[in-house]
Design a protein around this nucleic acid. Structure first.
Lengths: 182, 182
DNA sequence: GTCGTTTCGGAATATTCGTTCCAAATATTG
DNA sequence: CAATATTTGGAACGAATATTCCGAAACGAC
């Protein structure tokens, strides 16, 4: 997983992957069919480990504002781990690889939608009627989180990224709790 | 430019590039030194043409809310041109390529900072004291725009992306005009 | 210990890529 | 027209890639 994370899909050679997994070439091709299969497995593990801790913040039991603040703090943390490449395995490596392969593009969409649905569900629990729909606000939160990941990849520090996240959490919370427009 | 846009940095073969530019291999290597030089030239042209129209919306002469709405409308438009790959040459192709090369990583940072400074300048013209700093809000707007680009790459329609942008424009405008916290 | 099965390491293959080179074609200049 | 410079198309090169293959080593069961 870390090899793909650091170097991206194309950048990770099978040579690197055998060294990192401990498995040798033959076993690797036996376990997954090809490099793409291994990559998808890495994405799955990334989602189950790293992203799960991010998403878990949404069920933190606090108010919407508290949960969103915790969410973006987790995003900021994740954005600066694996510093050498920076960013998110999905928003960077998978988003890149999506350009060449329909399977990977579908995977990217699946992962994006999954996150947005989680956010939407959390928002729906707190939404007052009127204002933007939970779906739109969930898309906004998810887009912001992904933009933060990209920004970290371009060299922003945890603090800079975190400031953005805190602002997003506050603005969206206010929008939900006191919608201003029809 | 379009070849890199559609296929990304690695995905674009020199073969494709000669066909697209009309120039042949030799002339191409004479004009720029190598593939990376040509790519940087493509990024420059992309910034001077496509991004310039996006950034110009910020000097539209309207209120902050109107200008930001126009800004995100331009972002949404850009996110769905070159449909085959989708997204933004900088947020997708350059952000990807940044993983392998320090020069490209610096270029990504330069481009990101440039956009944020433009946004910050526009916000500063309208900011009431208190609340989040124009720099942070500019980072938020830029991150959102980049997230929208990524989302379009994963298959979202212009309308879905636009809804996110409209929400972001409204929320930030309200935050600037009537800051709620200290 | 010996056989059968599974793992291992690395050589071999075929393809693709960026880049260089060269000779023919074309344009430019006197 | 002749001489020289520039551009062109494509072959050639070297490095890197994903994938396949095969003999050897390791291991477990009896």
């Amino acid at each position: 997983m870390h090899v793909f994370w650091r170097r991206g899909y194309d950048g990770a050679s099978v040579e690197d992957l055998t060294r990192a997994t401990g498995l040798n070439r033959s076993s690797l091709y036996a376990a997954w069919d090809d490099k793409r299969g291994l990559f998808l497995a890495a994405v799955e593990r990334y989602a189950r480990t790293r992203l799960a801790t991010v998403m878990a913040t949404l069920e933190g039991g606090g108010s919407l504002g508290e949960d969103l603040a915790a969410f973006f703090e987790a995003v900021a943390d994740l954005s600066v781990t694996e510093r050498e490449a920076g960013g998110c395995l999905i928003s960077c490596a998978l988003a890149d690889a999506a350009g060449k392969d329909a399977t990977l593009r579908n995977e990217l969409q699946r992962r994006f939608v999954a996150m947005e649905l989680r956010l939407e569900a959390r928002l729906a629990r707190a939404a007052a009627p009127g204002g933007d729909s939970p779906a739109t606000l969930a898309g906004l939160l998810a887009s912001t989180a992904r933009g933060m990941m990209l920004r970290a990849r371009a060299g922003a520090s945890r603090e800079e990224v975190l400031a953005i996240g805190r602002a997003a959490a506050r603005l969206v919370t206010e929008a939900v709790e006191r919608p201003s427009k029809t």
